[in-house]
Every structure is written in C-alpha cells, then in structure tokens.
C-alpha cells in the first residue's frame, strides 16, 4: 500500500458516498445516469468475486463490500425508491455498445484464460468506459448539479491517483499490470474535459454548464 493508492481508494469511497447521500438527502436522482450505475455494479461484482476465494486484508475486504453495497443501494434508490425522479429521456446511452466490446476484448486480451481472470479483465475494461453514459447525460442536459460534479471529480480522481500508484509500484516494487494501466489511462483521459470544466467553473462557485 502507498499514499497514491490509499488516497485513490479514499477518493473512490468518497465518490460512492457522495452519490448515495445526494440521492438520499435530495430524494432525487435527477442528473444521474442509472446506466452508468448498472455498469459500475457489474464492474464491482465481476472484479470482487475473489471476495469468496482470497482474503487479502480487512481493508481490502471491507472496501470491496462497501463498493458493492453502495452501488446496489444506488441502483435500488434510482430504480425503485425514487424512480419517479429518474430522467429516462436523457439517460439514453446504449450500454450494449460498451458491454459487447469489453467482453470480446477480455476474451482476447487477458493475463490468464481462467474464469476469474477473464472476469477481472472484463471488469477492468468495462470500468474504463462505465462513466460514458453519465458524461453523455451531462452533455445532453448541458449542465450538472454541483454535488454531481463533486461526485464525478472524486470518481475521476481515484483512477488518476491509481496511475501515480502504478508508477510508484513500477519503480519501488518492480510490479505492474499493463491491462490495468492502459485501461486506467483511458478511464482518466475520458474525464479530462470534465476536469477542465470542474476546475475552471465549479471551483469558482459557478454551475457546471457545458457550452451549448
């Protein structure tokens, strides 16, 4: 464990907590993409299957349980409790176009052709594009509530911090996983446009407005 990975995990934890709190306290999931949340639930379930096979540490296990729990809680809030506030019209990204290629890619490019490893690889590929429906929705609505932009900033930062963690681990532990690194770069690059808007607008107290 290193400071980059720890702050990345905490940023990720912050993001999922902000999201659940935002929906719970405002009793509304306006502006949130349910499709991205479904993709994240798939990411966590397929990646954390090793919860039942390998015990790494209390920290590792508890974080995995929290991420799976928070993502299912969010889906429950969005598609059941507050489904009246779910914005179907703007959440129209076709997630089949993300699922099919990532499944195929995971079958073709992986470290070991075993069930757990292919599912882990699929989860890594899917996570790199899972935010697209959310970013697509923000671009369609042309704006995002500030709490939603804080959620996106924390979520985007987590994988950016993981990039630093991988650089550190390459030099300090001579350890690297190319699949995770390449996907992590793609994932972080997808947020660049949003990061720019967040830093130039939201941090100055303005609302996140995309140029129409």
């Amino acid at each position: 464990m290193n400071i980059f990975r720890l702050s990345g995990d905490l940023s990720h934890l912050l993001a999922v907590i902000i999201l659940v709190l935002k929906i719970w306290t405002t009793r509304s999931c306006a502006g949130i993409s349910g499709k991205s949340q479904i993709l994240f639930a798939i990411v966590y379930v397929t990646r954390y299957l090793d919860l039942v096979t390998t015990f790494v540490s209390v920290y590792n296990t508890s974080m995995k349980v929290i991420f799976i729990g928070a993502s299912f809680a969010t889906i429950y809030l969005m598609y059941s409790k507050f489904k009246a506030t779910y914005d179907h019209n703007h959440d129209s990204f076709r997630i089949e176009f993300l699922l099919a290629p990532t499944v195929i890619l995971a079958l073709l490019i992986n470290q070991k052709f075993t069930v757990l490893e292919v599912l882990w690889t699929f989860s890594i590929y899917l996570e790199s594009v899972a935010i697209l429906p959310q970013l697509f929705m923000v671009s369609k609505t042309g704006e995002a509530e500030s709490i939603t932009s804080h959620y996106l900033f924390a979520l985007g930062s987590y994988r950016g911090l993981y990039l630093l963690n991988w650089i550190y681990r390459y030099y300090a532990e001579d350890h690297y996983e190319l699949i995770a690194i390449v996907s992590g770069i793609v994932q972080t690059v997808l947020y660049c446009d949003f990061f720019y808007l967040y830093i130039t607008k939201v941090l100055k107290g303005k609302k996140l407005q995309l140029p129409a």
């Binding site: 990975r5 995990d9 990720h12 090793d50 390998t54 790494v56 590792n60 974080m63 995995k64 991420f67 470290q111 070991k112 075993t114 757990l116 490893e117 882990w120 993981y162 963690n165 996983e177 995770a180």
Partner: peptide, 10 residues
C-alpha cells in the same frame, strides 16, 4: 503462477 493472477488492488 498464482502471483500473476493475484490482484491485490481494488
């Protein structure tokens, strides 16, 4: 070969 498939990160 367990090492390569062992992912200790979240």
């Amino acid at each position: 070969d367990f090492k390569s498939s062992f992912h200790d990160e979240l």
